[in-house]
């Protein structure tokens, strides 16, 4: 019940975003104009961002707005219905290889940049984890595991989200300029954008198919969260001479994002033909409604002032690292799409 006002706010902002998308499309149709199709996701984020950073979000709404993480995960589980195992297998090997390269690259690059610029080592670890796996949940998971400060964690989250917001505008423009296919673009967005909501949004801004591949690459990255966080936890535990208690398997299971299991289960059921075509469309629509709430929440949670307060060095390191990763993954994907005609 405490969450109700905030939920209504998410729904109102998200729905306004949907109306804006439809309004622009029907205006263009009526006047025979070719207007760019800007999806509801970006409008929802934009409206949320403006509201949060002008009038602010009153306390009564906060509990409901904080549920956006649930809607994100729910939306992703539903999205499983659009991934038939055949598609996954087709993409599997190549995408997995790319994910491995991206992980190694981001961790090495961020650690080196942080050391080189004399950044606090725990913040460096958080930025490395955030940029290699998945912005927010990885940072939250890692924060507990390596005992980092709240300020470091919120800065790392803010930096990852801000860079992701920038990529929402930059990525589709670059994709269109290079004439990338839906498949190639989605793969790139899933590899280079760090927040799951923003990676999905970047894909969705390009096309429905691109969103599909973005989520696929992104969920593969997300699935490695346990291993990377475990590695960092062991590193920092050893460094602070603290005894690491409990079994490693239990630790991995604890940190493993469970919604990935739901996603796989729904995808498996759809592959086996459990749902009719109409039922699959219904489930896919449920995922759109869940994302509508998610993206309104992402906008509302982005605090521009908070970001400015923390100084620019970590953001600069984050930005340099992210640009380099985006560039290298773009080269990989474009190269692969030439070679294998993605």
């Amino acid at each position: 019940m405490k969450a109700l006002p905030g939920l209504l706010l998410l729904a109102a902002i998200g729905y306004l975003g949907k109306l804006t998308e439809q309004g622009i499309a029907s205006y263009g149709k009526a006047h025979h104009l070719h207007l760019p199709n800007i999806e509801y996701v970006l409008w929802a984020i934009l409206y949320g961002l403006i509201l949060a950073n002008t009038v602010g979000v009153p306390r009564v709404f906060r509990a409901g707005v904080a549920t956006y993480e649930f809607w994100l995960k729910l939306g992703i589980v539903f999205l499983g219905v659009r991934f038939l195992l055949g598609d996954v297998l087709k993409l599997g090997g190549l995408s997995l290889g790319f994910v491995a390269v991206e992980l190694a690259l981001s961790i090495l690059l961020m650690s080196w940049l942080g050391k080189w610029m004399g950044l606090n080592p725990k913040l460096t670890s958080l930025l490395a984890i955030g940029s290699s796996i998945c912005g927010v949940s990885a940072i939250i998971a890692a924060k507990g595991a390596i005992d980092a400060d709240d300020e470091d964690a919120s800065y790392a989250i803010a930096a990852i989200l801000a860079l992701g917001a920038f990529s929402l505008f930059a990525f589709p423009a670059i994709g269109h300029a290079l004439g990338m296919s839906d498949h190639a673009f989605g793969l790139w967005a899933g590899l280079a954008v760090d927040n799951t909501a923003e990676a999905t949004a970047a894909g969705a801004l390009y096309s429905d198919t691109a969103a599909k591949f973005a989520v696929l690459a992104k969920t593969t990255r997300n699935a490695t969260i346990g291993f990377v966080v475990l590695g960092y936890a062991l590193y920092w535990a050893r460094k602070s001479q603290k005894e690491f208690s409990g079994s490693r398997v239990a630790f991995l299971w604890n940190k493993f994002p469970k919604f990935v299991l739901g996603f796989l289960l729904i995808s498996f059921a759809a592959t086996l033909g459990v749902f009719t075509k109409a039922q699959m469309a219904d489930i896919a629509n449920l995922s759109r409604w869940a994302f509508l709430l998610t993206f309104a929440g992402v906008g509302l949670q982005t605090n521009i002032r908070e970001l400015r307060k923390q100084g620019l060095k970590p953001l600069a390191i984050g930005a340099i690292g992210e640009f380099a990763i985006a560039g290298i993954t773009l080269a990989m994907v474009v190269g692969a799409s030439r070679a294998f005609e993605l």
Binding site: K73, I76, V77, V81, G262, D282, I283
Partner: peptide, 30 residues
């Protein structure tokens, strides 16, 4: 036992999928 957001998202989604499968939830428009 308190379930995490992750588990709730899985339970909710699977529940909704079952309801759709057996025609209990009506058609969902977009």
């Amino acid at each position: 036992m308190k379930l995490s957001v992750d588990w709730w998202s899985v339970i909710t989604a699977l529940g909704a999928a079952v309801l759709i499968k057996f025609g209990i939830l009506p058609h969902i428009p977009w």
